[in-house]
Amino acid sequence: MHIKSMLHRLGVAVVAGTMLTAAPALADDEAEHFIQAVLDEAEPYLDAPDQETQFDGIRQLVDKYVDMRRVGLFTLGKYARRITPEQKQVYLPLFKEYATGIYQDSLSTYAGEKLNVTTSIDRSTRDIIVNSEIIDAEPGSQLATMVVHWRVYRTRDGDLTIVDVGADGIWLAIEQLEQFTSVIANNGGPPAGVDALIADLKEQVTE
């Protein structure tokens, strides 16, 4: 009896311990379905033989699903609170144009491929990472082992949007944040630095 109760206690302790230490980040089915639907919608565009159709399709999807305003402010880092309303009015549309171009460039890498959602990890209930992989990629090719991550943001109203995309641990908005803050800092900080950033973006977009 004594031993049995010891064992029982041990069992409880082990279970409790596992729950405490493992505490696995939970998957988020809704976010997974959301990204899978976006990927399914992207498939015909990625299958298109010409780049124009691919780019048009990616632009439509970006317009529909990526919260560019949020990403645009995020990429300003600590300067997001120091940008003037006038600057913001110019900056946000420019950023959207610039970032859409990067999305087009990056996502068309997967032209002719089919991406499928594999897993998800919720960093919080509003901040979810969804992973996807290329199915039937040519064995041994770089794409075969590549994981494409989607950072999904759940708004207060419960709507899902995309705020970043990455491949093998390298994220686009984070890279943009480091570039933008570097430009602002190296041009004397706000407000002049923000003007310099806006000028650079203008140049990039019109090129």
Binding site: I121, R123, H149, D168, G169, I170, I174, E175, V183, L197
Partner: peptide, 30 residues
């Protein structure tokens, strides 16, 4: 816009993953 900062970011991000033995660690994201 800033080639130097861009490469630095790509390098730092990929190295972070490499240090984590090829696993991607999502805890470190901003």
């Amino acid at each position: 816009l800033d080639y130097y900062a861009s490469l630095r970011s790509f390098y730092m991000q990929s190295r972070k993953r490499e240090i984590a033995n090829g696993r991607t660690n999502f805890d470190d994201l901003p």
